[in-house]
Design a protein around this nucleic acid. Structure first.
Length: 590
RNA sequence: GGUCGCAUAGCUCAGCUGGAUAGAGCACCUGCCUUCUAAGCAGGCGGUCCUAGGUUCGAAUCCUAGUGCGAUCACCA
């Protein structure tokens, strides 16, 4: 039983004994630094069942605890706050319990239901950008956090491989490409296809301008531009299975997938399974027909199929066009069902998608419930805020995007500049240096994005580079590296320490360490890597303060030295584990 | 217009189910490298927690209204 649970029981029995009253719960908080004590009981809520002066009640409860609980060695009362001092032995004992535990913080997998996390849903007509990076980092981290909290997790993505967007790139390539390929151009496939998407847009705009000049209204021109009509025709051909179009579609999508794979690999994320909308939209259609039979949906005169959600406070939603073709919703219905078919142990799903789609997912979940799937109760939209630039939204067509690959490279080269300046890596090989710069650069980027609450939007200014000092990834990596340095030098056998007087800084570190498992559970419940990031930062701050104020290798006794080395090692494990569920690597040196 | 989200120091962000004098980092200012890596430590400066009401012993936190910003309400995805 942990300290707080134990104290809760004791406080309850104190109230019972002293005042013959029943307490529902006890409110605890960490004791503020300016007061003596380790944990604080808030007396005010007790006034509901015990009448009296909170300071006096605090005194009495405090005395009771001191008399009856071994680990309570003292107390003081400030206003309605009972500050309890805990004996060092408790913390030493706790530490001995977790000493050397490499997996500290991680829970065992329990239950037989798995969660599927979707965390990427790219269109195949353009490369990944900073917005995708946030999406991917968030989802990957939430997957790892869920695993660490004891859940079985499948990671997946949905690739939006069909539709007018890819036809535009295909058409532009046909027209202007002259057979260009990633190999011939020396370009990543996604970049190449993205270029043709931009080329399409240029040609399209030119045609609109021409039409407007010849007297057509702008609205009309946007609808009539020949190149657009041709792209639409191409989409129809694709849906009709036209061999030539399908072959081109396969070829260009293949280029894009290769490019995506490279980027994912650079970022360091992976998927257990990929889904393609071209595979799942048909299943969606089947279930629309099914829903039509069961009365969940209804058909309008023009043949389009709708779901009436007005009773749920929402609007009517189209699930199938009048010409019988699928809409976004159709595909998502199909994809969800397909996933459960493929993985019957999945009991819930998490969709990592931007908050611009809040409404869409509200509707999707409701429709799946109406269709009667029991797992539809356990769907969660992990909705995150957009990443905006000072100039506003990122737009691929207008070239105002921060490209994912470029950004990762820039981060590494910033890390290189800083490292070179500090000059601590003289004896490193070029290859090792390069590896390290990548670790640090990516660490900075990932931490920068993950430390903020997912639902808040991020304003990213490319001119102001991401920090490497203070509350940053590299700061935490640096602390880890210093710990490893100590461990390399320590040459200490495993010493068991039962009785030792703790230095204040040591106690603070142990307290912080003790919270880790709970923080993971919290982060899992709230789907928030930010909680992990902030926790890690606090832990590292405590450790650094300890490190700078207390000599570890120069401790007065072998016993103390051994204890401090072991404590440092455990902080190292916690940092490494915390960062691993953020998807960030830690270096042995830096 | 309806709905949803956000608003805390000059900037970037914490603040858990309501609890003590609202915390960090960056920036600015002071100290600390002859001792385990100074990407660090110790300290200083800096706040109308958007506004107004309400609930409560107690509100940055909960409720109501308003303001500002963003998103969304397509036979687009």
């Amino acid at each position: 039983m942990n300290l707080q649970d134990n104290l809760e029981l004791q406080v309850k029995s104190a109230i019972k004994t002293l005042f013959d009253a029943e307490l529902e719960s006890v409110e605890f908080q960490a004791t503020r630094k300016e007061f003596a004590g380790d944990i604080t009981v808030v007396v005010f809520p007790m006034l509901r069942v015990v009448k009296g002066n909170p300071a006096v009640i605090g005194e009495q409860v405090g005395q009771y605890l001191q008399d009856n609980v071994a680990v309570v060695k003292g107390f003081n009362v400030v206003k309605g706050f009972l500050n309890i001092e805990i004996a060092d032995a408790y913390y030493v004992n706790f530490f001995n319990g977790i000493k050397g535990e490499k997996n500290y913080g991680f829970a065992e997998v329990k239950g037989n239901k798995a969660i599927m996390v979707e965390y990427s849903s790219p269109n195949t007509n353009k490369p990944l950008h900073l917005g995708h990076i946030r999406n991917v980092l968030l989802g990957y981290s939430v997957s790892e956090i869920l695993k660490a909290s004891g859940k079985k997790v499948y990671k997946t993505q949905i690739i939006n491989d069909r539709g007018i967007h890819i036809c535009k790139s295909m058409l532009a390539w046909q027209r202007f490409g002259e057979g260009e390929s990633p190999e011939s151009a020396g370009l990543k496939g996604d970049k190449l296809v993205g270029n043709y998407y931009v080329k399409f847009d240029k040609a399209y705009k030119n045609e609109i301008a021409e039409l407007v000049k010849s007297g057509v209204s702008k609205d009309e021109a946007e609808k009539q531009a020949p190149i657009l009509l041709e792209a639409q025709e191409m989409l129809r051909k694709w849906e009709g299975g036209d061999e030539e179009v399908v072959a081109l579609w396969k070829k260009m999508n293949g280029w894009v997938y290769e490019g995506f794979e490279k980027t994912y690999k650079e970022i360091g994320v992976d998927f257990d399974k990929n889904y393609y909308e071209s595979d799942t939209y048909l299943l969606g259609k089947e279930f629309v027909a099914e829903g039509l039979r069961s009365g969940v949906f209804y058909k309008k005169e023009d043949g389009s199929v709708w779901c009436d959600l007005t009773e749920d406070g929402l609007d009517e939603k189209i699930v199938l066009r009048s010409d019988g073709t699928a809409v976004y919703m159709t595909q998502d219905i199909g994809t969800a069902i397909q996933r459960i078919k493929d993985y019957p142990d999945v009991g819930g799903m998490v969709y990592t998608v931007g908050n611009e789609q809040d409404y869409h997912f509200k509707v999707l979940f409701l429709i799946l419930q109406k269709l009667g799937f029991d797992w539809a109760e356990n769907l969660f939209h992990l909705s995150y805020g957009m990443v905006d630039l000072p100039s506003g939204k990122m737009k691929s067509r207008e070239g105002t995007v921060v490209d994912a690959d470029d950004l990762i490279e820039e981060m590494a080269s910033t890390a290189e500049e800083i490292s070179e300046e500090l000059g601590k890596l003289e004896d490193y090989s070029e290859a090792d240096k390069k590896e390290l710069y990548k670790t640090i650069g990516l660490g900075a980027l990932k931490y920068y994005i993950l430390k903020v609450d997912p639902k808040k939007r991020i304003l990213f200014d490319p001119k102001e580079s991401i920090d490497f000092q203070g509350n940053t990834g590299p700061f935490i990596q640096y602390t880890y590296a210093r710990i490893q340095s100590i461990l390399r030098k320590a040459e200490i056998e495993d010493i068991s320490v039962d009785e030792i007087e703790l230095h204040e800084k040591e106690k603070q570190v142990i307290k912080q360490l003790a919270q880790f498992p709970e923080v993971i559970q919290n982060a899992a419940d709230q789907h928030s890597p930010a909680l992990i990031a902030n926790y890690t930062y606090d832990l590292v701050k405590e450790f650094n303060s300890f490190y700078q104020n207390v000599s570890i290798l120069g401790a007065d006794s072998e016993l103390e030295k051994g204890f401090r080395v072991a404590l440092s090692a455990n902080v190292g494990h916690a940092i490494k584990n915390a960062f691993s569920i953020l998807g960030i690597e830690v270096p042995e040196r830096m």
